[in-house]
Design a protein around this nucleic acid. Structure first.
Lengths: 130, 130
DNA sequence: ATTTTAATCGCAACAATGTTGCGATAATAT
DNA sequence: ATATTATCGCAACATTGTTGCGATTAAAAT
């Protein structure tokens, strides 16, 4: 049986996610970990955390990939069907945990996962007029 | 004033989009054009077609980028707010022109664009049990 | 029809992001 | 304390996309 281990690098990455209010890219995590571990190691940690359902992957409209901590509620089966907001100005991505789209889809499609991303201006950038 | 020109490569790319029922990646287009033009030229053509609102860019859940022809309706201002379906098996991406999500978003966010992608099994792959 | 203009192209070079193989290291179970 | 194997570091590679620049060429002007 595959067990996941707690390593220094993994702990550090988790800590960074814990402290961040926004989603983080591989590059941003790498900057924060400094020379604690190799670039490849971070990729592998991110993969593992996604598999273990501890973080989820977010692909932005512009193609950039970020990750954010999962906030589990009482659900057993767990789809990341909340919305994400991507600010065009500060480029930050935040989870809108409570925003869930409703939609009607033709039968004969089987939906396993959904991605709902809104982009525009976040409250911070909307208020600052520059 | 910038005018866009009709070149052999651009015409070929448009033709490929016209014939395709699904969204196409840069690589797929390159395969179909063969050695008609350079790799870079295709990137530039795609950029121009997006700017001219003739095709739209679709970023999939897995981060792959594809493009599809725009089907304009009577709208003047034109947001690509329809849904896209991404099949996990055949990897094809199709536009669900009529599927539009409804949602409630906190005020103090300004939404300029939305991306709504569903993934799972398309009708074709759902029916074939293998 | 010929000339002029500048949009487009091809090529080479570069950058960012992600993947893979493999021997070395180290977390966990025994 | 030892054995097992998940994880790591490093090097090498793949893919995708970008940029600069001189050469072409579509389309406008003459």
């Amino acid at each position: 049986m595959k067990t996941t281990r707690n390593t220094a690098a993994k702990t550090a990455v988790l800590d960074i996610f814990e402290k961040s209010k926004t989603a983080l890219s591989h590059t941003e995590i790498q900057k924060q970990t400094g020379d604690l571990c190799d670039r490849v190691t971070i990729y592998r940690i991110l993969d593992r955390l996604v598999n273990d359902d501890i973080i989820h992957k977010i692909v932005n409209l512009d193609g950039t990939v970020k990750y954010a901590k999962c906030h589990h509620h009482a659900q057993r089966v767990h789809i990341h069907n909340h919305a994400h907001f991507s600010c065009e100005k500060c480029l930050e991505i935040t989870c809108l945990e409570n925003v869930k789209p409703s939609y009607i889809i033709p039968h004969n499609y089987k939906v396993n996962d959904i991605n709902f991303t809104l982009s525009g201006l976040c409250p911070n950038c909307l208020n600052s007029n520059n």
